[in-house]
Simulated assay, not measured.
Amino acid sequence: MIQQLRIYEIYEHNKAAFHARFRDHAARIMRTKYDFKFVAMWETTFGGRTEFVYVLEWPDEATKIAAWSALMADAEWTEIKRVTHAEHGLMVGTIEDRLLMPVDYSPVQGRSLVPGG
């Protein structure tokens, strides 16, 4: 198992709209169409900016790459982003994406972090 850390800069003025879009649309599409496995999600403030942070779990890097490619090409997701951007403006600033590979002495080495996984 590998984990993926995603950090999105989000904006206070449309934070509620961002969370509604992610909760009601992005996460649904990611889970149901492309088998994204969410470990956890957080909101934090760092360096004077508000961030939405989440961790995904993948069996391997090839699966991660294929799922993200499919999501980025998904017509429903493309349309949702278009509509919400028109209504609320830019909802995400900087995006950080990190692949987390457990070291051989990690307590999570080889096991799933997904609840029930």
Rank of each mutant, 00 (worst) to 15 (best):
M1V: 12
M1D: 06
Q3F: 01
Q3T: 07
I7Y: 02
I7V: 15
Y8K: 10
I10Y: 01
I10G: 00
E12S: 13
H13Q: 13
N14L: 03
A16W: 00
F18N: 00
A20Y: 09
A20C: 05
A20M: 10
F22H: 10
R23K: 13
D24A: 06
H25V: 08
H25L: 03
A26H: 07
A27G: 00
A27Q: 12
R28F: 04
M30G: 04
M30S: 09
M30E: 12
R31E: 12
R31N: 07
K33G: 08
K33R: 15
D35E: 11
D35C: 08
F36Y: 15
M41Y: 07
M41Q: 11
M41S: 10
W42T: 02
W42H: 12
E43D: 14
T44W: 04
T45V: 15
T45A: 13
T45G: 11
F46N: 11
F46E: 14
G47Q: 13
G48Q: 11
R49W: 03
R49Q: 11
R49S: 11
E51I: 10
F52I: 02
F52T: 02
V53E: 01
V53H: 01
V53Q: 01
V53R: 00
V55D: 00
L56Y: 02
L56K: 01
E57V: 07
E57N: 08
W58Q: 05
W58A: 04
E61N: 05
A62Y: 03
T63P: 00
K64T: 01
A67R: 07
W68I: 09
S69D: 15
A70R: 11
A70P: 03
M72T: 02
A73F: 05
A75K: 13
A75W: 02
A75I: 09
E79I: 03
E79Q: 15
R82S: 12
T84D: 14
A86I: 03
E87F: 00
E87P: 00
H88L: 08
H88A: 09
G89P: 02
L90V: 12
L90P: 06
L90S: 12
M91H: 05
G93S: 07
G93K: 06
T94P: 00
I95T: 15
E96L: 13
E96F: 11
D97Q: 12
R98A: 14
L99V: 14
L99G: 03
L99S: 04
M101T: 14
P102I: 01
Y105T: 14
Y105Q: 08
S106W: 06
S106I: 08
P107G: 08
P107V: 10
Q109R: 15
R111I: 15
R111W: 07
S112F: 04
L113I: 05
G116C: 03
G116I: 02
